[in-house]
């Protein structure tokens, strides 16, 4: 399913989407495929594959550590494409989250082509703002990849309108001023930011990320957003587990808890 279709389906069911993030190649290529398929089976509607990068300035310690482990084992951009192919092949809707330099190095148009061929439907670019994205906008149009840019509580209304106009599929609202990582409470800035996006374009689905770590928080965010994005808490299931089997079972359990949460949006 495309991102637009899957958001439309969730809206019809009066629930939010669960978008679960996992770095490609963490802790190994095959393990990351297994983790992502487990997340998909346990209720993640969209699998957000993060391309590991040496200098992830938007990410907190958990994603940094997982990315470092993947890079330390030699994961390559082409492995990320292979992982996407396997996960999409298992029936999951896959989007890629990537910092910009690896894409520029690969070749922007070639990457959009190969990403589409691997079966991803969209790409999130945390350090590429629409102002610098002319080449990406052209390539993603040509290869029909949905583009997700970020909006932040600090964005002006003008920038929100401009950014949302360049998104296709959904827009990623960073719920608080800070890097990724689970928080004990959901930011009060998030509902306001979602409201401002809706004001710019009522039809553009909004995914909210940064800070969600359990079912109750997922339900809370589902109360005002179209998509709940979870990364660090899922990654920690694998990172902190004493062995692979335990990690996978924790990952399934948390995915199921979050999936339950997005189906019971707070009123």
């Amino acid at each position: 399913m495309s991102i637009a279709e899957i958001f439309a389906k969730a809206r019809a069911e009066e629930r939010a989407l669960l978008i679960g993030c996992m770095p490609a190649g963490f802790p190994t290529v095959d393990d990351s495929i297994e983790s992502m398929i487990a997340m998909h089976e346990a209720g993640c509607d969209v699998i957000e594959v993060e391309l590991p990068y040496s200098d992830p300035v938007m990410d907190g310690p958990v994603i940094q550590k997982a990315s470092d482990i993947a890079l330390g084992r030699g994961v390559r951009t082409r492995d990320t494409l292979r992982i996407i192919e396997a996960v999409a092949g298992a029936g999951a809707t896959v989007v890629l989250m990537t910092y910009w330099n690896p894409i520029e190095k690969y070749g922007v148009n070639a990457f959009a082509r190969d990403l589409a061929a691997a079966g991803a439907t969209g790409m999130i670019t945390p350090d590429l703002i629409p102002d610098e994205a002319a080449e990406w906008i052209a390539a993603s149009d040509e290869h029909r990849i949905d583009r997700t840019f970020l909006v932040s509580p600090s964005s002006t209304d003008e920038r929100i309108a401009m950014t949302v106009a360049q998104c296709r599929g959904f827009v990623y609202a960073t719920a608080l001023m800070g890097v990724t990582g689970a928080r004990t409470s959901v930011s009060s800035q998030a509902p306001d930011l979602v409201e401002r996006v809706r004001h710019a374009n009522p039809d553009m689905p909004v995914g909210v990320g940064l800070g969600v770590g359990n079912g109750a928080q997922a339900a809370e965010v589902a109360g005002f957003a179209d998509g709940v994005i979870v990364g660090s808490a899922l990654i920690r299931c694998v990172l902190d587990a004493p062995d692979r089997a335990t990690g996978l079972s924790r990952l399934r359990a948390l995915s199921a808890e979050l999936a339950e949460g997005v189906r019971n949006p707070a009123k």
Partner: peptide
Amino acid sequence: LSGHFGRYGGRFVPEALVRA
């Protein structure tokens, strides 16, 4: 005005930093 020296420079940053 957008900070480019030919094709170099610019702003490749998270949106959260744009206002600052």
